[in-house]
C-alpha cells in the first residue's frame, strides 16, 4: 500500500530535523520550513521516511497510507484561489 508523508503546517516549527533524514524528499524553504515532495514515498526510502517522521520534535510529520479519495468538502475545500480552478 502506497505511503505518503503528511505535514501539519500548523504544528511544524521549522526545526528542519526531518530534512536531515530524508533530503531526497524534504528540502527547506527560505524560512527553514520543509517542502515535501508530493506523491507516494518510494519503497527504498520508506525506512528513512519513517525515521524523519519519528525525529520531528513536535509530531508535525507523519507517514501514512495514501488517501483513497480526495476530500470533497470541509477545510481544504474552503475558498479556492481564483487561479487554481476547481
Amino acid at each position: 500500500m502506497a505511503q505518503v508523508l503528511r505535514l501539519d503546517p500548523i504544528r511544524c516549527d521549522g526545526y528542519g530535523v526531518c530534512a536531515v533524514h530524508l533530503p531526497e524528499r524534504i528540502t527547506l524553504d527560505e524560512w527553514g520550513y520543509p517542502v515535501i515532495e508530493p506523491g507516494p514515498v518510494p519503497e527504498r526510502l520508506l525506512s528513512r521516511a519513517r525515521r524523519a517522521a519519528d525525529a520531528c520534535p513536535v509530531l508535525a510529520l507523519s507517514l501514512r497510507q495514501a488517501a483513497v479519495a480526495p476530500a470533497t468538502t470541509g477545510s481544504r475545500a474552503g475558498i479556492r484561489p481564483a487561479r487554481t480552478g476547481a
Partner: peptide
C-alpha cells in the same frame, strides 16, 4: 514558496 503551503487557503488566495 508560499503557494499551497498553509493549513488553509489564505496564502494561496493572496498569492493568486
Amino acid at each position: 514558496q508560499v503557494d499551497g503551503r498553509g493549513a488553509c487557503h489564505h496564502p494561496d488566495g493572496a498569492i493568486a
